[in-house]
């Protein structure tokens, strides 16, 4: 996993109560969505856990396909659980993501680069994620 921040080392941002837990804003959204859905009764936690184990096992069976990234597996597991329950189908996620990628230049992420947020972009809490809006783009 290529985290943009030095999470463990001496350059790690100071935290009064442990380390920075998410390397990228999307990781925190993926985490928060899974827990929020569970708390709202969308699925029992062991179902998510089983999906996560399956995703990780699949990665380990063919690790050359992509670098190890825990929250990628987490996100995949969340999509799997939601797809199985019929709440959100995988094709829908891909379609919406493609639409987001095609946003006008300068709006947010450069389209199609598989690009993530730069270091220190928006970790500090008090971030900006209004409903149905984007992640951390400049307002």
């Amino acid at each position: 996993m290529t985290a943009p921040l030095d999470i463990e080392g001496p350059a790690a941002p100071p935290r009064s109560n442990g380390e920075l837990v998410f390397a990228e804003p999307w990781e925190s959204r993926a985490f928060g969505m899974a827990v929020a859905l569970h708390e709202a009764g969308a699925f029992a936690w062991p179902r998510f856990q089983a999906a996560l184990i399956a995703r990780i096992a699949a990665w380990q069976a063919a690790p050359a396909d992509e670098p190890w990234d825990y929250y990628r597996q987490w996100l995949g597991a969340l999509e799997d659980v939601l797809a199985r329950g019929g709440a959100v189908l995988p094709g829908e996620v891909a379609e919406r993501a493609r639409a987001l990628a095609g946003r006008p230049a300068g709006h947010d992420h450069p389209a199609g680069h598989g690009h993530d947020h730069p270091a220190g972009h928006d970790h500090a809490g008090g971030h900006d994620h209004p409903a149905g809006h984007g992640h951390g783009h400049p307002h």
Binding site: P25, W26, D69, R72, E79, V93, A99, H115, H117, H135
Partner: peptide, 10 residues
């Protein structure tokens, strides 16, 4: 599709 985009879409 980057995981950031997939997460946002989801």
């Amino acid at each position: 599709l980057s995981p950031a985009l997939r997460t946002e879409a989801l």
